[in-house]
């Protein structure tokens, strides 16, 4: 790092503080014994103990995990194949396909929420687990496709060509060459999708029905009904869980598999 203006370094440090201080404060307060306000009244685990015994929160946590697993799983099943199919298409088609794929990730979530709500209500679909899973798939599917395609583009097609030359059927090529080579991207996409689904609030808020409360919905209603230290503990847990998932996804995707060219052997 030569000639880095010191003002830039100071500024960067401040920005990092700005990004992390609120989260640190939140986690710190979750150990505060005080029931009201932010003054420090001693260290305690009692809010976490309370969480662990709150039936409503446990149920919401279970709902969240089930919804995240199902929406991510189905997004993977559809997304991996779609990514492989799209990468083999001609270049011309790609630009508008890209546009269509990125659109669900770009438009404000609230648009997706109200649009889906109207479709479901007008078609008299019962709001609940099913509608939430569909809602989450609308962003999880493009997310999976984008991540898997990025990996595919780095893979040398010679691996597949070699398999075909040796007489492999398309099915063999898919299951014994392409999919194993894509494994890191698939795991990465799965973990990321799981996190995004677990954390989603806006779309869930619009398409959830009674009895399908997820963890973010629970946090939201707790914030609305009044501040309790329990929210801090629950928030801290959620922050740590999503950080772990994202960290894991990052690590998995960094793991190297043979992406370099076959011809170098």
């Amino acid at each position: 790092m030569k000639r880095m203006p010191s003002s830039f370094l100071v500024m960067s440090l401040l920005v990092m503080l700005f990004l992390y201080l609120p989260v640190v404060i939140l986690i710190g307060l979750s150990f505060n014994a005080s029931t009201m306000g932010v003054a420090w009244k001693g260290f305690t685990f009692q809010w976490y103990e309370k969480l662990a015994m709150d039936q409503g929160i446990l149920e919401a946590a279970l709902n969240s995990v089930v919804i995240a697993l199902l929406s991510t799983g189905m997004a993977l099943i559809l997304g991996v194949g779609t990514a492989i199919g799209l990468e083999t298409r001609q270049k011309r088609q790609r630009s508008w396909v890209n546009m269509i794929l990125v659109l669900p990730l770009v438009i404000p979530e609230i648009l997706l929420g109200v649009a889906l709500l109207m479709v479901f209500v007008l078609c008299q679909v019962h709001l609940g687990f099913g509608t939430i899973i569909i809602g989450h798939m609308v962003f999880n599917l493009p997310l999976t496709i984008v991540i898997v395609r990025a990996r595919l583009r780095k893979l040398d097609p010679a691996w597949e060509d070699a398999a075909r030359d040796l007489g492999a059927t398309p099915w063999d090529v898919l299951t014994r060459i392409t999919l194993p080579l894509l494994r890191p991207a698939i795991w990465g996409a799965a973990l990321l999708g799981f996190t995004v689904s677990l954390d989603d609030f806006v779309v869930t808020f619009f398409v959830a029905g009674p009895g399908s409360t997820t963890l973010p919905l629970k946090v939201f209603s707790m914030i609305k009904t009044g501040m309790t230290p329990e929210i801090n503990a629950l928030s801290a847990v959620m922050v740590v869980v999503s950080m772990l998932c994202v960290g894991l996804s990052w690590a998995v995707q960094q793991r190297s598999t043979p992406v370099s060219s076959v011809s170098s052997y």
Partner: peptide
Amino acid sequence: WTNFLVRTYAWVLI
């Protein structure tokens, strides 16, 4: 990638 709702709520506390 961290929960947006929770991160915003942290500012309520501040």
